[in-house]
Simulated scan of single mutants.
Amino acid sequence: MRIAVAGSSGLIGSQVCRLAGEAGHEVVRLSRTDGVDLLDPDAVAKALVGVEAVVDVSRPSRMDLASAREFFTTVARNLGAAGREAGVRRTVVLSIVGVDRGQDYDWYVATLAHEQAIREHAPGARVLRTTQFHEFPGQVLQRALAGRASSGAVEIMDVPTQPVDSAEVARALVEIATDPGSADRQLAGPRTERLVDLVRELAAHDGLDLTVVPGPASTSMAGGSMLPGPEVPTAGVDWHTWLESRRG
């Protein structure tokens, strides 16, 4: 099968490309790093010739609401128009567990718009909603350090989370893209944590001399909107096991 991966150079996209290639599929990489601008409809149309399935794990360079929503909707329209012309059968988009419950948080507003735009424009739309990846605490810490003064504590939003191994996310995306009978799915990690505790443990594990303290969060996230319901399947190792295996 010929599979296109939008966002092929990112954390999830690179793993999807590798897994699909190892399974014998022909992979078409769609990212600026790989020479395709997803915001250019002509470039996307040219790249999707002969493609049977699209996996959209694209992410904007800016995370503010207006920029992110514009990026997501434009990419969805471009993938949809080119996909219909090329005869694409399925378009799989990556989203977030609880995204519809977290609409007081701008990134979740933009992500839900991404879902909706793919459903509206792309052929054979499927949605995979997952909890945050194991890499998420590290990403949060990096953003906090980037905005940190020369002294003082690092504030991390105090929210419950149930992180999942990104390798399991990539595997699920490939399964949905290649299975004619696939449907929307959700996926979570095996263990509930608090994000501030994970960041604190990560900083200590990496030998960083930091004081990590709980910070404010949106009402929905503080109330548990990031957590999966009991019906959501879990997969992969817990965050602490992942940390030791990746950073040991």
Rank of each mutant, 00 (worst) to 15 (best):
E70F: 00
R246Y: 08
G21L: 13
S150C: 03
E175R: 14
E175P: 00
A66E: 15
A117W: 07
S245F: 08
A204P: 00
V199Y: 15
V99N: 09
L227N: 07
L38A: 10
S31T: 10
A217D: 01
A20F: 06
T234P: 02
T178Q: 08
S14K: 08
K46Q: 15
G152C: 12
L19D: 08
A6Y: 08
E231G: 05
T219M: 13
I3C: 02
W239K: 06
S151Y: 00
G80M: 03
P137F: 08
H25F: 03
L198I: 09
G138Y: 09
H121M: 01
D104Q: 09
V199R: 09
E70Y: 00
G87H: 08
I176F: 10
G229S: 02
A66M: 09
A153M: 12
M63V: 15
D179K: 10
V88Y: 07
M221Q: 13
I3E: 05
T161K: 03
G224V: 02
A188R: 03
D40Q: 05
H240C: 00
R89M: 02
V54W: 01
Q142E: 14
G98Q: 07
S8Q: 07
P216E: 15
D209I: 08
E155S: 15
V93M: 05
L145V: 00
V51I: 05
T178V: 15
G98T: 10
E85T: 15
L39N: 11
T211C: 01
G224D: 04
T161A: 13
L195I: 11
F136R: 00
I12F: 00
A43T: 05
G7S: 03
Q142N: 00
T130D: 02
V44F: 14
D42S: 14
S8I: 10
Q142M: 02
A4N: 11
R62Y: 10
E135M: 04
P228A: 10
A235G: 02
G138K: 12
P233W: 09
D42E: 15
F71P: 02
V51R: 06
S220Q: 03
E231I: 01
T131S: 08
V28D: 04
T91E: 09
D34E: 13
V93H: 04
I176Y: 09
A203K: 08
V169S: 05
R171Y: 01
G229L: 11
Q15A: 15
R101L: 15
D42C: 00
L187A: 05
P163Y: 04
V127R: 05
R62A: 13
A81P: 00
V237E: 13
D64E: 14
D106S: 13
T111A: 14
E193D: 11
L11E: 13
G215A: 13
E193L: 11
S218T: 15
R185G: 01
A110R: 04
A203D: 03
D37T: 10
G223W: 03
H240Y: 12
V196K: 09
G229H: 05
G13A: 02
R2N: 10
Q116C: 03
V5R: 08
R29G: 04
T111H: 13
E168M: 10
A125V: 07
A47K: 04
L19T: 06
